[in-house]
């Protein structure tokens, strides 16, 4: 193994700058996602309790306890594993623990920028930033859970960067 040799290690870029957290309100969106997973489980538990007299309330109780954890704890953990870093010329987006993904897009490669806001996001004052690149892999890179003002500011920064290059 010679992973320590060559250009790769010679580059000092190994120290990636610290990540910025997403807006705490984003936890509620993650909770909404968890809720969607929970609904079929809940229905299953009710059905099981109805069919098996002996168990009756047991499955429902179990699902409610698991559900409380899924709704309360898991989104917190998922939130803490997400983050981004707005560099001088690139954006880095990190997410996931078990399924970790860490993406870097140089501003100079952004083709166009989308800012989307779903109903729940609007209620919570959040926005999702989507960067489109010319690449076939990672053709669009999504960063959800930004406060709306932050997202708009980021869009402006990236836009100006692109504009400057066009000159």
């Amino acid at each position: 193994m010679d992973q320590d040799g060559g250009t790769a290690a010679a580059a000092p870029a190994i120290a990636e700058p610290a990540l910025t957290r997403l807006d705490p309100n984003y936890i509620w969106i993650l909770r909404a996602h968890s809720l969607v997973v929970l609904v079929p489980l809940l229905a299953g538990a009710v059905f099981l309790g109805e069919t098996l007299e002996a168990l009756r309330w047991l499955p429902l109780l179990l699902v409610l306890i698991v559900g409380a954890i899924v709704l309360w704890r898991v989104p917190l953990r998922r939130f803490s594993h997400r983050g981004y870093n707005m560099g001088a010329d690139r954006l880095r987006i990190v997410k996931g623990f078990l399924f970790y993904s860490d993406t870097v897009v140089p501003f100079g490669r952004v083709q166009h920028i989308d800012l989307t806001r779903g109903p729940l996001e609007r209620f919570l004052g959040l926005a999702t930033l989507i960067l489109h690149t010319a690449g076939t892999h990672n053709a669009s890179i999504t960063l959800p859970g930004l406060a709306q003002e932050d997202a708009e500011a980021m869009r402006e920064t990236i836009r100006q960067h692109i504009k400057r290059e066009m000159m």
């Binding site: 078990l98 399924f99 970790y100 993904s101 860490d102 993406t103 870097v104 897009v105 140089p106 490669r109 690149t133 010319a134 690449g135 892999h137 990672n138 890179i141």
Partner: peptide, 8 residues
């Protein structure tokens, strides 16, 4: 155009 590091 972009670079992504993933781990399962």
């Amino acid at each position: 155009q972009s670079a992504e590091i993933t781990q399962g």
